[in-house]
Amino acid sequence: MTPAFSLSGISKRYPHFALQDISLSLPEGQVMGLVGVNGAGKTTLLRLLTGLAAPDAGEVRVLGHRLPEGQVAAKRDIGFASEDMRLYRTQSLRWHMDLVRRAFPGWDDDYAANLMQRFDLRADQPLEGFSHGQRVKALLLLCLARRPRLLLLDEPTTGLDPVARIEVLEALADVLRDERRSVLFSSHNTHDVEQLADAITFVHQGRLVASDDRHAFVDRWRRLLCQGAPPEGLSGWPEIASVRTSGSLVELKVRQWRDDLPERLAASGLQVQREEAMALEDIFITAVRSGAVA
């Protein structure tokens, strides 16, 4: 099966930032969450995937098209919305819908009307009268109603109030029921990513830190509370991401959980008292701090 997109050995250099050696792919029908702090390289990655930016090295393929050469054909099947994308404020949503309808043959009028009702948007009101939440929803409507095969969303929930955020996430969850539609969305909100994504990718300082299936992440990463003295060189063990000592209590964060680990720790003088799964946010922070590379 052709992947929705694949990046092979991608590098992109700007005067104050560089994306380095990124290889990543998304199977068709999957939802990938791209997690990283501001300035990590998420937007650059999405620009490469829309053909807006050309890589300095490596190959970008989206829906079977090599980018940026095939960007026009690829963009016909892509819905792209970013947090820093704005609509023309003097014009109405209906004007925008007419414009997008003429550019995308797959535009679905019924679905657009449905989304407009669901998001409680007024078609004839100029955008300058819209709140931030309404503008985001309008942008999302323009993306979704063109029925894209690949949806690329850059920080779609940033700056939204809780109600608008839930509405946007619910609309996205509905979209994701279509098994042929692939989605990549970036966020620094790990809770949103946890709710929607099948696969998760961490980026930091222009590098891919980790990329895996969401369940694999949760299965692999563990927080252990241990009693005893940590053996020398424990932080150098490949499966250990972090070691924190507080008196006789030792907190370990494990990036590669194995059932025999408590036994090996016990042999080194550490008794595991508690073992628990880690939240995605904690996994992200630990992965970034430990400098793990996928």
Partner: peptide, 16 residues
């Protein structure tokens, strides 16, 4: 106004 990003998301090449 950042409406440029919206225009560029349409199926256009730099030449277009």
């Amino acid at each position: 106004d950042k409406t440029l990003a919206f225009a560029m998301s349409l199926p256009v090449s730099p030449l277009d």
